[in-house]
């Protein structure tokens, strides 16, 4: 019986389905990054899910408070963060082509845009707190601060690897695989914001 299984395996390897026999043909670290991101999907799904449930059980109160949020500032931040994703994607393609200076430049843009996002977020937070709006004020603001706060924490964390690979690229050392991993994480943080932005600020 084992022989039959092995035979089938060999046949699969030799046949047209060689790709199917070894589906996860990627580096272990890249696969690990994807698994991490899958767990992150669950983390934010829990936050978003509980927010939506709370929201629809307190629909009128929530939308009143949501409309008081600064949506133009959040729209600006959306543009900034998607822009940073663009520069990150360009950095990854430069890194995979082995172009260190170009990689460093685009990682620099990404870093700056990430910082701009955080500065805008800080302005938003401080204005809120200045007006006495803190997480304990209401269910909506507790959700708002938790969700945007967790997202901002992810972004702050992401700045660290961007800085590290960026500085390496600046010294002429560029590893396409590593930059790609950083890019995956960065795009994920962008992706989370794409959902937070309309659900918190626009509805």
């Amino acid at each position: 019986m084992d022989a039959a299984v092995a035979e089938a395996h060999v046949a699969a390897l030799q046949g047209e389905d060689a790709h199917a026999a070894e589906p996860f043909r990627m580096s272990a670290v890249k696969f690990a990054m994807w698994l991490f991101l899958a767990s992150e999907v669950m983390f934010f799904a829990g936050l978003l899910g509980s927010y939506l449930v709370l929201r629809f059980s307190h629909a009128n109160q929530f939308s009143e408070e949501a409309l008081a949020l600064n949506w133009p500032l959040a729209t600006l931040n959306t543009v900034v963060l998607i822009g940073s994703s663009l520069t990150m994607a360009l950095a990854v393609s430069a890194a995979q082509a082995g172009q260190a200076p170009r990689t460093a430049r685009f990682l620099g843009f990404t870093f700056v845009l990430g910082v701009v996002f955080l500065v805008v977020k800080a302005i938003e937070y401080s204005t809120k707190i200045h007006h006495g709006i803190v997480p304990s004020m209401s269910l909506f603001y507790a959700s708002y601060f938790t969700m945007t706060g967790c997202h901002a924490l992810h972004l702050i964390g992401g700045l660290v690897p961007v800085t590290v690979v960026g500085l390496r690229a600046l010294r002429g050392r560029v590893d396409g695989g590593k930059v790609e991993l950083v890019g995956l994480y960065w795009h994920f943080v962008d992706l989370v914001w794409i959902f937070l932005f309309p659900l918190l600020y626009l509805i």
């Binding site: 890019g183 994920f188 962008d190 794409i194 309309p198 659900l199």
Partner: peptide, 20 residues
Amino acid sequence: ALIAVAVALVKGTLVAAFFM
């Protein structure tokens, strides 16, 4: 809410499919 989620899904798909 549904409209917002629908547009976000399209945007998220673009980011995941092409940027990632």
